[in-house]
Structure formats: structure tokens, C-alpha cells
Simulated scan of single mutants.
Amino acid sequence: MVGTQFRELPVGLPPMLPEMLGASNTQYFALYYQGSKATWSNGRAMATFSYYAVYAPLIEHIALAIYLKPYNLGSDDEAPEHAILCDTVHHKMYVGAYKEIDYFLLQQHPKELPALSQQEFEAAVKALENMTLEQMQKLGMFEMFGHTNPQARQQTVELVQWLDQQITEELIQQCIQLASRGNWTAMMALETLQRRISESKKHQQQLEKN
């Protein structure tokens, strides 16, 4: 059970997120930014993933941005002080202190590490050798070689569309109130939403002309 020291976010876990990260085989995992990379960890394994296709669309979306504002999830200049905790069974997200979440994640694993047989080890190596560049890009590896592939872009669209469904009139009003008081995060979230709406209208007008 998730401890009371973590704050539950008002937005549930996007159902496509674990698969996008490659973190489907664990109940709990954390998201944060470390070493110039968006990172996920389940307390035993960790990996980087795409910043532009997954991390930024998630944390900068208007449905989450203002709730994450008080927390330091890490940056190019700072180590993470906080992290997002994801529960794949109950489809919830929490935010809390990085060290406390890291300790919490360790508790979901047995203390004794299962040993890999030689056959299992060889199979793991073969799976990595057979992974294509496209598959690695989907997992966020080698992002510096270019933008995400078409399949990853489609998953990003689905992620954003799911988050869009979490937007409520109350949330918009809350953002407007915060923006009017000079809250930079709220202003940027509203500006991003406005730009998306404007671009969507332009696209629709072009389709109608054609």
C-alpha cells in the first residue's frame, strides 16, 4: 500500500504509459529527470526514455503541470528532490520525496535476487542483440540521433489525447486564476493549450479548403 507521505495526483495513470516506457512488468515505478535524461526506476531496474515523446508531454500537460509545480523532479542542473510514483495495478500517480519513493520501490522486490540460469542469460543477451534501432528509439535510447519514429509519435498522440480527457472547466479556471497572479507554470500551460487549439483550427481550415 502506498504510504500517506505521498500526495496522490488528481490525474490517474495514463494506461499507455507503462508500455511506452517499457515498465509494464512491475506494479510500482518512479519517473524523474536525472543526468540529462528522463528516467524511470522500479527500485531494482532503471532506464532512460524519450524526453520529447513521453516525459515533456506528460509533466507539461495542463492536466498535471500546476500540480507538479511545487516539486523538483530534476533538471540538467539539479538532481531530483522529488519523483512521480506510478501504480500500474490501481492506475494512480503520486508525487513525493525522491529518497522516500526510492526506498518504497525497494520494498516491492524480494530481498534475494533470483539467479539467472545460463540459458536465461544467453536469451537476454540475444534479445538485446536482436533489438533494432527503431525499437531502441521507442524506448528512448539514442534519442540524440533524431526525433521519435512514427509509432512512438502515435503513442505520444494517444498519451496527450488521454490527458486531454482529464481537463475540466474547474482546472481551466484554476489555471486562469494562477496565471493572473503571475504563476509561470499556469501561464505556460495555458499558452501551450491555446497554441494547440489555434494550430488545430488552422489545420481544419486547410482541410476544408482542399
Results as ranks from 00 to 15, higher is better:
Met1Val: 09
Arg7His: 12
Arg7Pro: 02
Arg7Ser: 10
Gly12Asp: 07
Leu13Tyr: 02
Leu13Met: 08
Leu13Ala: 01
Leu13Glu: 05
Leu17Met: 08
Pro18Arg: 01
Glu19Cys: 06
Met20Lys: 07
Gly22Gln: 02
Asn25Tyr: 06
Gln27Thr: 11
Phe29His: 03
Phe29Pro: 02
Phe29Leu: 05
Tyr33Met: 05
Gly35Met: 02
Lys37Trp: 08
Ala38Ser: 15
Ala38Leu: 05
Ala38Gln: 06
Thr39Tyr: 00
Thr39Lys: 01
Trp40Asn: 04
Asn42Lys: 04
Asn42Asp: 15
Ala45Trp: 11
Ala45Glu: 15
Met46Tyr: 10
Thr48Val: 07
Ser50Lys: 01
Tyr51Met: 10
Tyr52Thr: 11
Tyr52Lys: 14
Ala53Glu: 09
Ile59His: 04
Ile59Gly: 06
Glu60Tyr: 07
Glu60Trp: 02
His61Ser: 09
Ile62Leu: 14
Ile62His: 00
Ile66Cys: 12
Tyr67Ile: 01
Tyr67Gln: 12
Lys69Gly: 08
Asn72Ala: 08
Asn72Gln: 11
Leu73Tyr: 00
Ser75Leu: 06
Asp76Val: 05
Asp76Phe: 05
Asp77Asn: 01
Glu78Asp: 13
Glu78Ser: 08
Glu78Leu: 00
Ala79Leu: 08
Ala79Ser: 13
Cys86Ser: 11
Met93Gln: 10
Tyr94Cys: 05
Tyr94Gln: 07
Gly96Met: 03
Ala97Arg: 05
Tyr98Leu: 03
Lys99Phe: 02
Ile101Met: 04
Ile101Trp: 00
Tyr103Asp: 13
Leu105Lys: 01
Gln107Glu: 14
Gln107Ser: 14
Gln107Cys: 11
Gln108Ser: 12
Gln108Met: 07
Gln108Phe: 06
His109Lys: 07
Pro110Ala: 12
Leu113Pro: 03
Pro114Met: 09
Pro114Leu: 06
Pro114Lys: 09
Leu116Ser: 13
Leu116Met: 14
Leu116Ala: 13
Leu116Gly: 07
Leu116Pro: 05
Ser117Val: 09
Gln118Lys: 11
Gln119Lys: 15
Glu120Tyr: 07
Glu120Cys: 10
Ala123Gln: 14
Ala124Arg: 14
Leu128Ser: 14
Leu128Lys: 14
Leu128Thr: 11
Glu129His: 13
Leu133Pro: 01
Leu133His: 12
Lys138Cys: 11
Lys138Val: 05
Leu139Gly: 05
Leu139Trp: 05
Leu139Glu: 09
Leu139Cys: 07
Gly140Lys: 06
Met144Tyr: 15
Phe145His: 13
Phe145Tyr: 14
Gly146Cys: 11
His147Val: 09
Thr148Phe: 07
Gln151Thr: 14
Ala152Leu: 13
Ala152His: 03
Gln154Tyr: 13
Gln154Ile: 09
Leu159Ala: 08
Val160Glu: 08
Trp162Met: 05
Ile167Val: 13
Ile167Ser: 02
Thr168Trp: 02
Thr168Pro: 04
Glu170Leu: 05
Glu170Phe: 04
Ile172Thr: 12
Gln177Pro: 00
Gln177Lys: 12
Ser180Gln: 10
Ser180Arg: 09
Asn183Cys: 07
Asn183Asp: 15
Asn183Phe: 02
Met187Asn: 09
Gln194Thr: 09
Arg195Gln: 13
Arg196Gln: 12
Arg196His: 08
Ile197Asp: 07
Ile197Lys: 11
Ser198Met: 06
Lys202Ala: 10
Lys202Pro: 00
Gln204Ala: 12
Gln204Leu: 10
Gln205Arg: 11
Gln206Met: 09
Gln206Lys: 12
Gln206Asp: 06
Gln206Tyr: 04
Glu208Val: 05
Asn210Cys: 07
